[in-house]
């Protein structure tokens, strides 16, 4: 019996979403009275021993160059072998791009029920039930996993990272792998400096900004807030901004602490992707924009005047 946490890394570093998955998995282990172990695939420069402070007791590291690139088939095989050998009954992923590629495969391989996009700890009072968002954030569902082994893919920004203290034992793990059928030719880093799904603050622009040449004020605001950049669907469709910045029902779903929407009317499809944000600020010159109904704070005004003032005011606050 144990909880196995898949610890993802990008650019050879452990990212925030993985720390959230670790804290979440460690909490489940505490709740169910078992140990929390981690698995890391591929080479990385980050020191894995420091992860002990988050409460993970053992980390199995397969520093195999064949695992440096994501091949869902190989990753699944590697995780399944370990899960079976340590008798893991709960396996935790982050529901990030890597988790989305592997967790369903593992679910089918192990015949282990999967809840993807979990937003809370499992309720184990009567079975094993996990809350997740459905209808793109317009509702939630409590899903009961009915199999002995359970897989949870945790929504980014849904669980707080906790340092509980402790140390971790690092062990070398050597899975048996078939030759990879996926050959990675090249990779490029996303344009934004802060990954959107992980950003605590997101600044988002819509058609109200009139054209891509006007994004400077949005970027300036994002910069002072160390925020991620997002946009509405019409903006991405018009190629004003890259597709990976599109948030909404058919784009990405995000749940930052603070979401600032500039020149976005707030169609129901857009709201679906952002309504899990803790605080929503809307800046729009149209007082009738539906977004104001879903907002916590709002300014009815011209974005081209308000946004630079807001940037200056935040700069002043940060300087104080």
């Amino acid at each position: 019996m144990s909880v196995l946490i898949f610890i993802d890394h990008a650019e050879e570093q452990i990212k925030k979403a993985s720390l959230e998955a670790i804290s979440y998995g460690v909490k489940i282990a505490q709740q169910t009275g078992t140990t929390a172990e981690g698995i890391v695939l591929g080479n990385l420069t980050d020191d894995l021993a420091v992860l002990g402070k988050y409460g993970v007791q053992k980390i199995h590291h397969a520093a195999d160059a064949n695992l440096d690139h994501l091949d869902a088939q190989q990753y699944t095989a590697a995780i399944a072998q370990l899960a079976q050998s340590i008798n893991a009954d709960v396996i935790v992923f982050s529901n990030n791009t890597t988790g989305k590629a592997i967790a369903p495969r593992l679910s089918a391989k192990l015949k282990a029920g999967l809840v993807s996009g979990a937003v809370a700890l499992p309720d184990t009072t009567n079975g094993f039930t996990v809350k997740k968002n459905v209808f793109s954030g317009k509702a939630f569902a409590n899903i009961t996993i009915t199999t002995p082994v359970k897989i949870i893919a945790l929504s980014p920004n849904a669980y707080k990272i906790e340092e509980v203290g402790g140390s971790t034992e690092l062990v070398t793990y050597t899975p048996t792998l078939a030759a990879s059928k996926v050959k990675v030719i090249s990779s490029t880093k996303a344009s934004g400096e802060i990954p959107l799904a992980e950003a605590e603050i997101v600044v988002s622009g819509g058609r109200g900004l009139k054209g891509p040449e006007n994004w400077g004020i949005v970027e300036d605001l994002a910069k002072v807030l160390h925020a991620g950049l997002a946009c509405s669907r019409p903006v991405a469709d018009a190629h004003w901004r890259p597709h990976n910045e599109h948030v909404g029902q058919t784009g990405g779903a995000i749940a930052p602490n603070l979401y600032i929407a500039i020149g976005i009317s707030g169609a129901i499809q857009h709201l679906a992707g952002v309504n899990r944000s803790k605080v929503i600020v809307v800046i729009n010159k149209d007082a009738e924009a539906p977004f104001f109904k879903a907002a916590d704070y709002g300014i009815v005004g011209d974005a081209f005047e308000v946004v630079p003032k807001l940037t200056a005011a935040i700069n002043k606050l940060k300087g104080a």
Binding site: S107, K111, A112, G113, L114, V115, T129, V134, G137, K138, A139, F140, A141, N142, I143, T144, I145, T146, T147, N275, R276, I280, V282, F292, K293, A294, A295, D296, Y297, G298, I299, V300, G301, D302, E305, V306
Partner: peptide, 22 residues
Amino acid sequence: TLTTISSFGLPPAKAGVKLVDA
């Protein structure tokens, strides 16, 4: 099947927007 849906729910509604002068 590996899972069942036990229940659904709707997120709490927002308290209402606080408007600030431009």
